[in-house]
Design a protein around this nucleic acid. Sequence first.
RNA 1: GCUGCCGUAGCUCAGUGGUAGAGCACCCCCUUGGUAAGGGGGAGGUCCUCAGUUCAAUCCUGAGCGGCAGCACCA
Length: 647
Amino acid sequence: MVALTFPDGARREYPDNSTGFDIAKGISPSLAKRTVAMALDGVLIDLNDKIEKDAKIEFVSRDDPRALELIRHDAAHVMAEAVQQLWPGTQVTIGPVIENGFYYDFFRNEPFTPEDLPVIEKTMREIIAKDKPFTKEIWTRDQAKKFFKDKGENFKVELVDAIPPGESLKIYKQGDWLDLCRGPHMTSTGKIGNAFKLMKVAGAYWRGDAKNPMLTRIYGTAWPEQKQLDEYIHMLEEAEKRDHRRLGREMDLFHFQEDAPGAVFWHAKGWTLFETLIAYMRRRQQEAGYNEVNTPQLMDSQLWVTTGHMEKYREMLFLTEKREDDERTYTIKPMNCPGHVQLFKNGLKSYRDLPLRIAEFGKVHRFEPSGALHGLMRVRAFTQDDAHIFVTEEQITEVCLGIHHQLLSIYSDFGFETVAIKFADRPEKRVGADDVWDKAEVSLLAALKAAGKPYSHNKGEGAFYGPKLEYVLRDAIGRDWQCGTTQVDLNLPGRLGAFYIAASGEKVTPVMIHRAIFGSLERFIGILIEQHAGHLPLWLSPVQAMVCTITSDADGYAGEVLAAAKKAGLRVDADLRNEKINYKVREHSLAKVPVLLVVGKKESESRSVSIRRLGSEQQSVMPLEAALAALAAEATPPDLKRGQEAT
RNA sequence: GCUGCCGUAGCUCAGUGGUAGAGCACCCCCUUGGUAAGGGGGAGGUCCUCAGUUCAAUCCUGAGCGGCAGCACCA
């Protein structure tokens, strides 16, 4: 007998080898009917599994959040069956559940096209309508290998081989069709329901390795109810509306063109935003004791051999051709650090100079793979808010901690309160001895522990010269973006021959801490655009206000408003065109101008403005001076606001 | 980089082996209108590039470039 504890606390005994289904049926046939799986001691398993020991039991119905994964996994199996039914000879590989859905990777000489998706979906619906029961069998390794080999399923044979000895081989059947699978599954295909949709086809490497054959992956999404599927599709449409590439064009911020793949053409408004971010960061850096510098865009390629970049990252570098009248070739900088080491080396440094903070808004170029390029998020030419802090070994922890606090304060100014931290240690491709790495990792981790924030461990993901902390922002629609980084580097300064004179009079190699907060200005702007769906906060908006006239009678007054607003420090423009106010409101709203200052006869007579805020249909009429004072206060960058409050 | 899809006006997109289209935007005219598109007219194209097939290519074929999605990559 086994003793089972139910969610309500009741405890009952059942004969050995009872299945979940037996027990559910014993309680009530309707419970058995609506149960798709069970959880024993919190672990989800097949409802038809035999229960062999005392446990807490829960019956999982279709609308249980835990069933979502099963619905999706079952849908993946049904999709695989549909595909093999439609195109016999297609090999199946793996089909896991992912966030919001599932996929299955197939191998077939002919690729799938988007037109195939509705056909596959139709066949899936037929399989689901048949309500085929899922059944499980345990096979031996040889049995499974022979079966898949005979069927020509070579990828499955590889998967069988990859299963560790001693682990049982589970085969799940739905009718005649079967698949090697870890499970669990629901009781039958009918439980999947109809709230699913195949989303797209794409290539994916077998086992995620670019050296392996390319498979075709079909992505799908599945939900318990149609309503949730509709909501999900609606959410995707909303995300598309936030796409910074579209908004960038609509807001006249930047563009790309074929002549410069992966490089931004910043328009005046986009550049205003860019400069606003730099001005902000410049103030924050000054307050934290950084010295801003500028270093050459091109340096002798030999320098990059010394740093190790040429060896480790040659394919990422932009190099100049050798000229007839010059012996040397040059490399466009992919990073600012070697330049900053040159600055450190220029003039003898004392331990009294440390920590020495060198900052640069450095524009770097990296030959990113063409397939990686994505709007502002991944480019080949970008600007870092880069800084290098030269310290003694003893100063590492304290300096990293200081960076940590400033970094969080800065993210908070931009409205990012959820920041995850990852600790990345030594990668395989690296320079420097292991004992040096030991030291660097210990010191950086000490700062992280002192900060007292939760963090995750990103094994083997450090830079080639040192371990790093990665700061990951969560945006308004739940996406994660890695922006900031703090890296401890015990290697490069030594390689490049940097030293300082210690208190003892000896020459000592300094430790260099690399840090960036925005990371890439370009990317950070892309994130801000998507975070706010283009509705940037007033202090960041390139055009903060637009004076709109109702009739040309107000042109003169509009000019006064414009001049006064500029004098108040606002970035403002005026629209005096011979257009109706509706037209102007629509146009500037679409361009995401946050404040419209509408002036007509009434306003000019009373020296006031009618204010309409982006996203609101309401207007408020205020005296001109008061309105401008309020807007100017709101448009003050958060760090300056704090400064004003303090005085 | 790999796989698939795509490239026609500033934008969104139709279309055809023989003379290239729409809506919006732009310019001009009329309209002076109170908070998300007033009306009329006009201009605008190397149909991504190069080669091939053809009497004839924007269309068919091949290569290249660029974009999109996914994968791989991301110091």
